[in-house]
Computed example of a mutant assay.
Amino acid sequence: MDPEGERPQICNVTPFQQIVASCTGAILTSLMVTPLDVVKIRLQAQSNQFYKGKCFVYNNGLMDHLCICEEEGNKAWYKKPGYFRGTLDAFLKIIRNEGIKSLWSGLPPTLVMAVPATVIYFTCYDQLTALLKSKLGENESHIPIVAGIVARFGAVTVISPLELIRTKMQSKRFSYKELHQFVTKKVSKDGWISLWTGWTPTLLRDVPFSAMYWYNYELLKKWLCEKSGLYEPTFMINFTSGALSGSFAAVVTLPFDVVKTQKQTQLWMYESHKISMPMSTWAIMKNIVAKNGFSGLFTGLTPRLIKIAPACAIMISTYEFGKAFFQKKNTQKQQ
């Protein structure tokens, strides 16, 4: 606040600065959350062995990766031997026996795909929010919902064909020429729309998540600022708001996450072994409920929360910190 108690003038950041801030947040989130999932997968492999040809979904807080078990021995990071008594014990033994780099196994695919997707998502959200506020007014409460939905819809749609290509590449080693032939053949056979296979379950999970996340995040941030007597949110307010809003959205959208996981693994089995056509999203949901009851749609709630809460908190607080840094620089330049 200035001496008269008026609202301070904020110098907006440029789209390029938003891209840099979101890119930094995505990289930092990947670096900090990946070890949690590596440890989780190693603990799972210990109690339920991953055999050759089996696939599983690995998520590092930013995006899913379909991992294929190709190693018969113990060379693959998800099959290395060792008995762990718990999460902390696994952390310590992996570092001691395999080196600290093992905690970031599987990171490169994230940096190639998840970082651009996150940059598109966050930059679009901020640009849309600014546009809607200029048209509808600063205090319109539904702006975060609309901006979150549109931004996520766009990011999922852009990345979806790359997800399909990556899934195919993981089924066996492909040269760029073979990959081009696969895409050309698929388009000529099933049309361009076939490149968006798996788009629906991803959208059903990510779009409601985004709408709830941004609405609750903006609400919590405003409430915590008022409680603290602050005009601008601190790093901890952004961190706390991100963790809480991410946790809530993760619980509500978990059924669609369960369906997406099954859809991804089915798609890989079909593409690589031609074993049965992938089931529809609705058919998968009915199948899960029939086998395991309604609670089956909420399988893996705790691991998802352990991953999503810190990932959302780190991403948004880093992003907001980056924007605040650029705002300060821009203000100094203007003065």
Rank of each mutant, 00 (worst) to 15 (best):
K329Y: 15
G61N: 05
S134T: 10
L162A: 07
A76D: 11
W199T: 12
F153I: 11
K333T: 06
R96T: 07
S247A: 10
L92V: 08
F325I: 14
G246V: 03
L31A: 03
L162P: 01
L203G: 06
I27N: 08
T318H: 11
W199A: 10
I143F: 02
V207D: 05
D89Q: 01
L162N: 00
S105P: 00
N139G: 12
S175I: 04
L28K: 13
K172M: 12
S141M: 11
N292A: 15
S30T: 11
M63I: 05
R152Q: 14
T202R: 06
K260G: 03
L164W: 01
T118C: 09
P161S: 02
K260A: 14
L62G: 02
Q335T: 03
I95L: 10
F153M: 10
F122K: 11
L195W: 15
W282M: 09
I165P: 02
T87M: 00
A117V: 14
N330V: 09
Y213E: 13
S188W: 00
G5E: 11
I68L: 12
F294L: 02
G73P: 03
I314C: 10
F84M: 11
C55G: 06
Q44K: 06
M63D: 08
N139S: 07
Y270V: 13
R166F: 03
Y83V: 10
S228T: 05
G229K: 13
T302S: 06
T157G: 03
G5I: 08
C11T: 14
D37Y: 01
G5F: 02
Y78S: 03
N12C: 04
R205L: 06
C69P: 10
N60S: 13
M269Q: 02
N139L: 12
F294K: 02
P109Y: 02
C67N: 13
S228I: 07
K221L: 06
S30W: 15
I306C: 14
I95W: 05
Y58M: 12
P108G: 01
N60E: 12
I284W: 13
F235H: 08
K185H: 09
S245H: 05
M212D: 00
C11V: 15
I19A: 14
I68K: 03
T318L: 11
T129I: 11
I100K: 15
F239W: 03
F298S: 01
K263I: 04
N139T: 15
K307V: 04
Y176L: 05
E70L: 00
V207K: 06
A211W: 01
Y319K: 08
R304A: 10
P255V: 04
